[in-house]
Design a protein around this nucleic acid. Structure first.
Lengths: 339, 339
DNA sequence: TGTTAGCACTTTAAGGGTGAGAGTGCTAAT
DNA sequence: ATTAGCACTCTCACCCTTAAAGTGCTAACA
């Protein structure tokens, strides 16, 4: 059912005021601060209707109204007035990424940092899955008699190092040969394909079997240990006057300090969606109760470059948060796309 | 002044009981649970004396006694009965490090993790400074026409990658030449020495100036971004019944989520000391009030391999914590030393 | 001289009662 | 459809009281 214009306006006012003051909003407050042309009784009727519709709740019979998760969702998608970042903030973002945009890792880490700084909330990020990445080259670099570093280069400019054991009796030429063999086999395949490949060692290559197995092992490690997670400002929820009791803090931290939970909540259903809002409540247990996650997945050149989110009280400054997420995304995307 | 044996015993009892129950310890508790052969009045006199000496405090006139920071220090150094880890715990530790001991990074991260898991407190770690590390080799690895990966290998088996810009017109031979030049200059010097070097470019090498500057830059970045910090279980203090009010939690988190503060508190004066106990109080502000840090610096082959600590309430299970720190240290040291 | 029983004193914590204040829902009038 | 008015509900702050816990002190004792 579609809300009347006035109901929308009132709902917006309630959410705005509640975000601002952290106090339940009463009919009196609304008429005094925002709508002097109607009486509080009229507002009361409207509030009552909005409560009926599931957008508002009361803590007790004689308290004002507080937005429900539904209200926040509607607020972000429909009601909220979009905020613009100041020039100073925009310049700050650009500055950060222009300085250090040479590898994806640092862009990723910086993004999480900047988002947290500008919003003053805890921010989290998950780097893109590498399942789809295609291998460009594998190179060995002998490090000790029985150890080699393997460099894994993909089409996504990603790169990671990993040590493997190499038989001591293998000389440099043999190592090169092994490398050529492995590259021939793997190059331009995705990680997924590589990991599920079955390779028959015919006689001529059986000597490489050890190293081959080790490389596969390294790739698998790299592959599974993937999904880098970054968190910034875990303690920032404490600044925001919600989270006064210890249980809430416990809840919040248990999510924000767990790599697995962060991945879970960020990668759930974000694909392709620009700005995504989730609100923790009895219906959605992955987030702490009364906490919200606003997230976005950025892409460049048609490839995902990470999912980023802000997590904090449901009573969150969505205007700011959405503005920051959108702008950081836009800037990163433009920087990474242009070349 | 030296405490009488009985005072020591009583102090030990108070600390033990307080750690166990989190309740101020009364004279009655002591006579009933621990010393049936004396009356509570006698204990009261002793407690009063111990308070006079600064080892005990009272929350108010009619509460039992609580240990002071002094008491905890004495407890750890003198009074506490040392605990032995179970075989299961020892095997667990060994297992972790035998599996993944091939590079220092992973040993470092695992140590922090294991310590937190076995103690059930937040653990922190700082990797050793690399100021003293000697360079073994620098190698370039062309990655894109204008980018190269530089591998930095030190005598500590450390290794790190970093991208630098390389002039596009430089061909492979020239890159190799530059590499040889730079290696000749830098190899077997410490990072400290390298960073403070002044190099005159005579005519023949002026072509490498760009790349040279970039390498120095990379070394400096690597050098300064060093001191890896790891934290595990930031939220574990919430399990331990201290930290009931939000301000304490705030205090705790502000330390534990700040890389700088962790480095500060862990590297302060740990050199060469085996087990170090610090207690946050009005006299020592670097730690949250009523929180303790127990730390140790491990070495292998005469080189530091990191400082690790457990941070939690002053009312901490020191027996367990010290046992874990000592054993993890012993195991790591033996594994890293043997080869 | 060290130990102990006994008692007065202090402080906290929990429970209960009260009144003011805030806000609502309902009703009847406009 | 809107509004004034009013009864009703709930919370919160405050105060009072009481029970319980634990101490310090004193006087007696071995």
């Amino acid at each position: 059912m579609e809300l009347s214009e006035r109901k929308k306006k009132i709902l917006q006012i309630v959410v705005d005021d509640y975000i601002d003051t952290a106090m339940p909003v009463s009919s009196k407050t609304i008429t005094q601060k925002y709508m002097q042309n109607v009486s509080s009784a009229t507002i009361r009727a409207e509030l009552s209707a909005l409560e009926e519709l599931g957008y508002l709740t009361q803590l007790h019979t004689s308290s004002g109204r507080v937005p429900s998760p539904e209200a926040y969702k509607l607020y972000v998608s429909d009601l909220m007035v979009k905020e613009k970042l100041t020039k100073k903030e925009l310049d700050y973002i650009k500055d950060i990424f222009l300085k250090k945009a040479d590898n994806i890792e640092s862009v990723f880490k910086n993004a999480v940092k900047v988002i947290s700084e500008l919003t003053d909330y805890t921010s989290i990020g998950v780097s893109p899955s590498i399942k789809e990445d295609r291998l460009r080259e594998i190179r060995f670099f002998r490090f000790k008699p029985d150890k080699a570093l393997v460099l894994i280069v993909t089409d996504q400019k990603l790169l990671k190092d990993n040590f493997i054991d190499v038989p001591e009796e293998m000389n440099t030429e043999q190592l090169d040969e092994a490398s050529a063999f492995i590259n021939k086999l793997f190059v331009s395949k995705t990680f997924q394909e590589i990991c599920s490949m079955e390779v028959d060692f015919d006689e001529s290559f059986s000597g490489y079997k050890t190293i081959f197995v080790n490389v596969i092992e390294a790739l698998k490690t790299y592959f599974s240990a993937r999904e880098d997670v970054a968190v910034e400002g875990q303690d920032k929820m404490l600044r925001h006057a919600d989270y006064l009791d210890v249980d809430k803090i416990k809840d919040f931290l248990s999510v924000v300090t767990s790599k697995d939970k962060i991945i879970d909540v960020l990668t759930e259903d974000n694909k392709g969606i620009k700005i995504n809002v989730k609100i923790g409540s009895n219906g959605y247990e992955k987030l702490p109760k009364d906490s919200s996650l606003v997230s976005a997945t950025y892409t460049a050149n048609g490839k995902e470059i990470g999912t980023y989110g802000v997590i904090g009280p449901s009573r969150m400054d969505y205007q700011k948060v959405v503005a920051v997420l959108e702008n950081v995304g836009r800037i990163i995307e433009s920087i990474l796309t242009e070349r």
